[in-house]
Computed example of a mutant assay.
Amino acid sequence: MAVADLMLLDFNVILYDIKEVYFPHSFLSYTSICSLVIVLVYISFDCSVWLTVTFTFDRFVVICCQSLRSKYCTMKTALKVITAVFVLSFLENIPIYFIFEPRDVINDVPWSCYVKTSFYTSPTWVAYLWFESLLTPFAPFVLILLLNTLTIKHIIMANRVRSKLRGNNTEACQTDQETENRRKSIILLVAISGNFIFLWMVNLVCFICVQFTDTQLMETDYYDSFTIAEKSGYMLRCLSTCTNTFIYAVSQRHFREELKNVIARPFLAIANIFNRLTTKRTLSKNVNK
């Protein structure tokens, strides 16, 4: 997930957005390279979103499917799933390279990317657009909501059974570490679902508008309300991929411990050096005496 999000930051933020503002006439603006960068952006989006889905499914198996846990939650399975996500995301987005044409031709050199008019009228391209949008983000929407709902339901039922087995001892229930861990898991799952849905909602609305109105994607009229909404949706979509990884990482106790160690390590090294110097000075004074 972290690698996919870093890919997205590199391709979408640096090579596409920042390039358009600060390096508008660089070689990155050639139509062939511009199209390739956009393809890489979509590949990164799909990888990030679907790795979030697979991570959610992994947590569902760990919590709800004890019999499947030992077989599915292995390093070998994780490697296969991650490889499949990256390969399928790459294959799925190859056609995007061919939907663009040059915006300008200067000295026989095609510049910038412009969506072909046939993209909105050709039945093949319309079908591909629907397939692409159903695959990301409609399907992840449904899967993340379904898996997290089932996981939360399982946790609530397990808590009820546990509280009955422990009896009506209020003090014991309040100090139950297992119940507290399950409560934190529910908060995490709700945060992931709400974050994903909220930050992708604008992008979904823009897609629906394109299908049922005369508006088009990737217009450059920044005074147009739809263009502003579309660009805002892209920004929130980028934010979504980053926050998912952040929420998952920070929620892991081992990750927090390693992060604390990384932050504390420079200070510990300085403290050790200071202690050694102090020890040497003390020994030198004792020898002189």
Rank of each mutant, 00 (worst) to 15 (best):
D10P: 02
E178I: 13
N244D: 08
I186E: 08
T83S: 14
S32M: 13
V115L: 14
E257G: 11
T175V: 13
I63R: 04
E258D: 08
F212A: 06
T179K: 13
C47H: 09
V161D: 10
A229T: 06
L277V: 05
N261P: 04
K116M: 11
R166W: 13
V126N: 11
I33E: 05
R162F: 12
S29G: 04
C73D: 06
C73L: 07
T136R: 09
T170S: 10
N12R: 00
I82N: 06
N195Y: 12
D46Y: 14
V202R: 08
M201A: 15
Y72W: 13
I186K: 07
L15E: 08
L68D: 02
L236A: 12
S251W: 12
F119M: 03
M1Q: 10
W130P: 01
V202L: 13
A158T: 11
K184Y: 11
V190P: 05
T279P: 00
Y97T: 07
F274M: 04
E101H: 07
F198P: 00
T245V: 13
Y16M: 02
F131I: 05
Y42F: 15
Y22A: 10
T213M: 05
R256A: 14
N272T: 09
R103S: 01
R256C: 15
W50K: 05
W200I: 03
L134H: 08
T175W: 15
I270G: 00
L6T: 06
W125T: 06
A271I: 11
K231M: 02
L91N: 06
F198T: 14
A84Q: 08
L199N: 09
L147C: 09
V190Y: 14
S232V: 05
E258N: 11
R166C: 12
K285E: 12
C113F: 02
F198Y: 14
R276A: 02
D17K: 00
S240L: 09
I152H: 03
F226W: 03
L88A: 07
F100K: 04
R281H: 04
I197M: 15
R182I: 08
S44Y: 13
A84N: 09
Y248S: 05
K153F: 15
T215E: 09
D104M: 04
C65F: 03
C34N: 03
F57D: 00
F45H: 10
S284I: 05
P102A: 09
F55R: 14
K280H: 06
T121V: 11
V287R: 11
K285H: 10
E132Q: 12
Q66M: 07
I270L: 10
N12P: 00
I63C: 04
D214M: 09
V49G: 07
L91P: 01
T136V: 12
K76F: 11
A269M: 10
N244Y: 15
L150P: 07
H25I: 04
Y248F: 15
D176L: 12
E230H: 02
N181D: 09
